[in-house]
């Protein structure tokens, strides 16, 4: 950078330079400052909430709860197994296939509908 033309004495230059700060305008926040901040706070809250849900789930996996959870799963499995006959299983499978249209012939209906 070039130095300002040194016409006056050095002291005058120094005083002129020091006075520059008196003329500096104050910086102001942009009009979207508060809006942006609110958005960032909302994002932070969301992360916090996700964190607390994860903490809650992890809480259930503490060693003290593990035997109880295993026992509950075994009991639930036995109850479901004893209640299901092979006939009803086949019926359930057929109704599942029909409900989701897995037995329908292959067509391009999906593309025709969405491709218009």
């Amino acid at each position: 950078m070039t130095r300002p033309e040194n016409t006056g004495n050095v002291e005058e230059q120094i005083q002129k330079t020091l006075r520059c700060l008196d003329e500096v305008e104050k910086a102001k926040a942009s009009p979207f400052f508060a809006q942006r901040l609110r958005q960032r706070l909302a994002d932070m809250d969301g992360q916090g909430r996700r964190g607390s849900l994860a903490d809650l789930l992890m809480g259930w996996l503490r060693p003290a709860f593990v035997p109880a959870l295993v026992a509950a799963s075994v009991v639930l499995g036995v109850l479901i197994g004893s209640d299901t006959s092979s006939g009803s299983r086949a019926g359930n499978l057929q109704s599942f296939v029909s409900s989701y249209g897995l037995d329908a012939p292959e067509t391009n209906d999906y593309f025709l509908t969405h491709g218009e």
């Binding site: 950078m1 070039t2 300002p4 033309e5 330079t17 020091l18 520059c20 700060l21 500096v24």
Partner: peptide
């Protein structure tokens, strides 16, 4: 420009 330079120097 001179003023801008002064601000930078300061």
């Amino acid at each position: 420009l001179e003023q801008a330079e002064r601000v930078q120097i300061l």
